[in-house]
């Protein structure tokens, strides 16, 4: 029964409801102003980099460094914070005859898209008025899209964490920080350690597989494919060559990123539907 409900498409009334929830969330957030502040930070950062840093590649790379480090943290904190803060509101809505699925998607989209828009618009405007967007459109669009995607992924993860540690906020925040630290920094350290420990074995496949399991690494690989392809092509191994030198690298990496969005969102939805609030 429940599975059927999952597959069933949203009817027009629910669709209207969904857009209504999203709209409402947008209004609340913009009234809250700090999403605007978040966008402004990226605007000022990008503009400053462009004024002092010079060339397009330099700025896009600095921007992507900042993006790879902070967007996951902000996204997760933001997601979990929302779950905790709007507890009463969500519970009130749940008393209404609203499909839980509709409510979940409404809340998720209503939260994550403003944050994504803040980054994309904030970074895009200076890139536009300094002419980088026109001069190097492929790389600019890719960095912006990656930032947007990371926002969605990590807000979804934040949601999951918030729902999982619904009663224990300290634990929830603790896990958020630990997961971020692990994904952003420690994970690569572990890969490096594995490479040095098992250096005598063919490791290319393992290394590629390992990076595919971390969304921050995935985004980083895509940045590499854009900016460091000349270095990557200097590597002799056939597997790397196949992965980086053809379209398979970019296709696999973007496919995995979509999966990284779909899986947490789906888990979040399942938890949300079954949860006894």
């Amino acid at each position: 029964m429940e599975e059927d409900e999952n597959i069933k498409k949203l009817n027009p009334v629910e669709m209207k409801l969904l857009t209504h929830i999203i709209k409402n969330e947008w209004k609340t957030l913009i009234r809250g102003k700090w999403v605007i502040g978040y966008g402004l930070i990226f605007l000022i950062l990008t503009d400053t980099l462009l004024r002092f840093g010079g060339g397009g590649a330099e700025v896009l790379l600095s921007l992507s460094n900042v993006m790879l480090l902070f967007i996951p943290l902000v996204g997760m904190i933001y997601g979990i914070l929302y779950i905790y803060q709007s507890r009463e509101f969500v519970e009130l809505l749940l008393t209404q005859p609203i499909n839980r699925k509709t409510l979940f998607w409404g809340l998720f989209c209503g939260i994550s898209t403003p944050l994504m828009a803040a980054f994309v618009v904030g970074a895009m405007l200076p890139l536009g008025w300094h002419g980088i967007l026109a001069q190097d459109p492929g790389a600019s669009v890719m960095v912006l899209a990656l930032g947007g995607m990371l926002t969605l992924i990590f807000v979804a993860l934040g949601f999951v964490l918030g729902l999982a540690f619904y009663e224990d906020r300290i634990k929830g925040f603790g896990f958020t920080i630990v997961i971020w630290l692990f994904m952003a920094i420690l994970y690569d350290g572990l890969i490096l350690m594995a490479i040095f420990t098992f250096g005598d074995y063919p490791l290319e496949r393992f290394v590629i597989a390992a990076t595919m399991l971390n969304p921050i690494d995935l985004a980083r690989i895509m940045v590499l494919l854009e900016f460091d392809i000349s270095a990557l092509m200097g590597y002799t191994g056939a597997v790397f060559r196949q992965f980086f030198g053809t379209n398979s690298g970019i296709l696999t990496a973007s496919g995995m990123l979509v999966l990284w969005l779909a899986v947490p969102a789906w888990i979040g939805l399942r938890v949300f539907k079954k949860k006894d609030f």
């Binding site: 040095f196 980083r220 590597y235 191994g237």
Partner: peptide, 20 residues
Amino acid sequence: IIIQRQPESLILLRSMFITL
């Protein structure tokens, strides 16, 4: 120098850990 010893670690280029 790390890459000269273990070329596979090239995949960690621009990683925060490597920057540190």
